[in-house]
Simulated assay, not measured.
Amino acid sequence: MFKTASDEDRRAQVGIGTLIMFVAMVLIAVVAAGVLVNTAGVLQSQAEATGQESTAEVSNTLEVYTSVGTLDENGHIETVDMTVSLGPGSNPIDLGNIVIDYLGPNDHAYVKGEHVAVDGSEGTVLEDGSDRGTITLELEEKAQPLEPGDGAAITIITNDGAQISQELIVPTTLDGEAGEKIRL
């Protein structure tokens, strides 16, 4: 009447269960591998972007050649003209997009690159190492004019985040007429 399952029949039932578990584990492994590959791709993209930003911040710099102040009628420096060019290996820099952090003896100001000129060009972009630009900082608009013996620190911040520092030191005696240029 009742037939009992033989050992051969029982093995087949166990084999099907094991096969289903194996397929489920393979599917889980495939999903996990996909997540890991996707995460690795995102991290690689972020690392590349960070590397490019860091490289631009370090290599896209300016060199300041001269800083010249103009005397006003009171014997103070009212404007400062800085002659700049691209640093070695630098990409083009638009001087119209720079920000100047000015720290004078009595005041502090941030100035956008408003008064900028590039020699031999209608625009404000330094294209190669032979280009020279002039950044004019008009102190009476944003800060107090510099007096004899004063010092000021200027930091030029490019669009890429590079920071170029320049120290201005006014001679202790200023003998000259209004409009005369004094090297700082």
Rank of each mutant, 00 (worst) to 15 (best):
L95N: 01
P105L: 07
G151D: 10
T134F: 00
E63P: 00
G69D: 12
H115Q: 05
E138Y: 06
D131Q: 08
N60T: 04
V170E: 07
L71S: 12
G113K: 04
S165K: 08
L103W: 04
K112S: 10
N159H: 11
G113S: 10
D94A: 14
I135T: 01
V116A: 06
G179F: 01
E73V: 04
S85P: 02
L146E: 11
S90G: 09
Y110H: 11
L174M: 14
Q144Y: 13
A117K: 05
P105I: 02
T155W: 06
S67W: 01
D119G: 08
N91F: 13
V58I: 13
E167C: 01
S90L: 03
I164L: 05
T155K: 15
A117P: 00
V84Q: 07
G123L: 04
A143L: 10
Y65F: 14
Y110W: 11
T66I: 05
N60V: 02
V64F: 08
L146Y: 13
N106I: 12
P105Y: 06
A162M: 06
G89F: 00
A153T: 13
E63Y: 12
P92H: 08
N74G: 03
Q166P: 00
S90K: 07
I169W: 10
V118P: 06
T173F: 06
L139D: 07
I100F: 14
I93H: 03
D175P: 03
L146F: 10
G176F: 08
H108Y: 12
L86N: 04
N60D: 15
K112G: 05
L86Q: 03
E138A: 04
I100V: 15
T134L: 11
S130Y: 09
N97P: 05
G75L: 07
E177C: 12
V118K: 05
Q144K: 12
V111P: 00
D72T: 05
E140T: 13
L137F: 04
N106T: 15
A117M: 09
G89Y: 04
P148G: 09
N159Y: 10
G120R: 10
L95H: 06
P145G: 07
I98A: 08
A117Y: 01
V84C: 09
T134Y: 02
S59V: 14
T66N: 09
A117S: 13
T61W: 03
G120K: 08
S59C: 03
V84K: 02
V125T: 14
I157F: 04
G149I: 08
P145E: 03
E141D: 13
G89I: 05
D81L: 11
A178F: 03
A117Q: 13
K142R: 12
D160F: 10
L71T: 11
P148A: 13
S67V: 15
I169H: 12
T124L: 05
V84H: 08
S90Y: 06
G89S: 13
T158S: 03
L174H: 15
A152L: 10
Y102I: 12
G161I: 04
Y110C: 00
E141P: 01
G69C: 11
L174T: 14
D160V: 14
A152Y: 07
Q144A: 15
D119A: 15
S67G: 15
P88W: 03
T66E: 11
L174A: 12
N91I: 14
K142D: 00
G120L: 04
T79R: 05
E122I: 10
T172I: 13
G149W: 09
